[in-house]
Amino acid sequence: MTWELFAVFIGSSVRLAVPLLLAGTGELVSERAGVLNMSIEGMMLTGAFGAAVGAWATGNPAVGLLIGIVAVVPIALLQALLSNTLRANQIVTGIGINILVLGATTLGYREIFGARSREQIPGLAKWSPPLLGDIPVFGEAVFQQVWLLYLGIVIIVLTALVLRYTALGIAIHAAGAEPRAADKSGVSVTRIRYMGVMFAGFMSALAGAFLSIGDIHTFTEGMTRGAGYLAIAAVIFGKWTLTGTVLACLLFGAATALQFQLPTLGVNVPNAFLIMLPYLLALLAVGGLAGRQTAPRALGEAYIRR
């Protein structure tokens, strides 16, 4: 493998990992607060659809991104309401929302784009940081990326700081691990969990927008293809730590990048196997590679205030 090809591989691994990184960070916060948010997949698809429609209608991808975020708000509110206030089974809720969104976006796509389905949608611009972008070979292949990627990195770093060093971070952790104790010490468990789900929605919207207007500049039916579930697997693989989740997402991104890289190297592996690889890795990851699992103790259980 030449340096050029290696640089392209690293660059595409990072690019393919971005949707997982964004959604995985959102899911991590939601799970740490105690809500198993299975509707990440649907939230991403909503974000992808909203951003694509917005960018196409206004001609401005940044406005599209905003519309994608706004479109996810009702979905995230629904998930938060069902799993906190109505104490619904969080898994069932997530599955229902995912089916609903897949149907609704497919319907909306046919109605809005219909015959114009092959039309390119204006996408987010690329940007490369000074200095880093000037490194020979690697500069362009690795660092010249859609600006949303860099914004995402900033948000992930901020999330890490908040989780680790602030009272809010401690409250989030407490809401997922010891909700009753958290409640007694004056933290509103319900409010923290609503915020967790809304944050997951926001991050999923960014992730979905990255897929549609950041990466391929179009929307296709069901285009998330299980990325949301990979993000959930990444949280489990990362043992509910942000660093672990980020590393798992990068691994899944690299596994996805292989399907475009190996053929160019002349390695003859069946395409189907390569497409399957990220899911296979995710299964291995949640099935023991990570060791015994240490989920937040109250994960998936609605909190009932006495």
Partner: peptide
Amino acid sequence: PTALVMVIQGLIVVTLAGAAF
């Protein structure tokens, strides 16, 4: 579009999940 059937199913599941309360 047949996606309409999926919308109906999703609504059914979400309603049921919420109605359990």
